[in-house]
Design a binder for these strands. Structure first.
Lengths: 232, 232
DNA sequence: CGCGGCTTTGATGTTCATCAAGTAAAGTGG
DNA sequence: CCACTTTACTTGATGAACATCAAAGCCGCG
């Protein structure tokens, strides 16, 4: 799927409108609508390349994306998952010239890119906007750090259970869902190795805690999974 | 050492003055000076208690503090170290009612506490201030996440070497320094166990990579330590 | 003095990474 | 469309890294 620009999408109806952009004046909103670029990308496509220079803010509207970084030794780490209405790639956005993480779609996604300068102008001129942005920024950073610390508390089985619950409860809000990432990516997200992630999933399946059919996962034993997440 | 308030300390000469408070008008600065409370705490004293309600911003002026959280099972995790001119306890400050981490002095420290509402008023009325705050916030969050990911890349020896280099290069800028935290705290910071941290330090000493005298650490073999940090 | 917390070392077992090898699935080029 | 390559997935076996348990020394503090 190639990237396309669709200027008909309206900022007035955007999910961000009700959060960080709620305080914009009609004029500011109009400027935003005109200036922003709207993009569709397919699963696996790169939205932002690690190391490239920061020229805009990325607002994920639909889909799911991973925040990944590739280390000198070639090993990839996934810092977190960005969800719709997440203001992604933000971590270093005000303090660095380049993106420190790649943002890669893990589901077909839609996002808007807004020029860096326009947002900074809004920050300088619109106090309520600044406040909303700080709040958003704060909650996203907090979640990112909190999740990493939560993962560190657990070992293999607990981490895998944590991730399954995360997708079921936080992302899809359903006990049956299509796992959007590969086993390798789960491993990169929880700081373990593929083989051990696979082994653990197989074990959960054998113990009838989950059912795996292709990329679909169904949680069969919510209680036991939760127990493993907390104590395993 | 008990907490004391010393209203004579001037905001005009504060380190923060040159960063996030640089854009304040004389009047705003005066209001800040009058309103803020200045505190001195000794090593080990709690600056902010995890779970307490957020009523102000903490600006660390002198000293060093740890950002820690205690988990339900009693195990403590250290998310990071706050340095002077750090705007600490910020992670959840705009998005939560309570502090999610305790802030505890690990050296005799001085900090200012500014009323939450006053800062929010500044955010709403002073665009340049908002911008500075976002930049500061961004760089601190980014560093926090980046450090955790760096640690995850390494195992025991690499992590311990990383922390020693961190204190020597980033904090004290000297190859000889007083380690401000216990072995247990190092363990909590790098997600390992005390015994293994102790073993590793003993090993480094035996191999003449570092010298340990009481709480003083001297790096004897910078090259070897750096190698372990990168490849060990 | 005695208690608790921090430090240290050794011994032992668990958890996990690594290596190996095979299957399945998915893309590639003739 | 089929051989071919590549990538993801899977299981087992082995060893390395680390947690845990145990015991003793140290120090500060009531």
């Amino acid at each position: 799927m190639t990237e396309s620009i669709c200027s008909s999408s309206s900022c007035a109806q955007c999910g961000f409108r009700s959060s960080i952009f709620s305080s914009l004046t009609d004029e500011q909103l109009k400027e935003l609508t005109v200036q922003k670029s709207f993009h569709k990308v397919g699963k696996g496509e790169v939205i932002v390349e690690q190391g490239s220079s920061i020229n805009g803010f990325i607002f994920l509207r639909v889909g799911l994306a991973k925040l990944a970084r590739i280390n000198p030794d070639g090993r990839e780490q996934i810092a977190g998952i960005a969800t719709p209405n997440d203001f992604v790639g933000l971590l270093s956005i005000f303090s660095s010239k380049t993106y420190k993480y790649s943002i890669i779609a893990i589901e077909d996604s839609e996002y808007c890119q807004v020029d860096y300068q326009l947002v900074m102008d809004l920050v300088e001129t619109n106090g309520k906007f600044s406040k909303s942005l700080l709040e958003k920024f704060s909650s996203v950073s907090d979640l990112l750090v909190g999740t990493r610390l939560e993962l560190e508390l657990r070992q293999l089985r607990g981490r895998v259970a944590f991730i399954i619950c995360y997708f079921a409860n936080e992302i899809y809000k359903d006990k049956t869902f299509n796992l959007p990432i590969s086993r390798k990516e789960i491993a990169e997200l929880i700081d373990m190795r593929v083989e051990n992630v696979v082994r653990t999933l197989s074990e959960f399946r054998r113990d009838k805690i989950i059912k795996i059919e292709g990329t679909t996962i169904e949680i069969l034993d919510q209680e036991k999974l939760k127990w493993i997440k907390m104590h395993g």
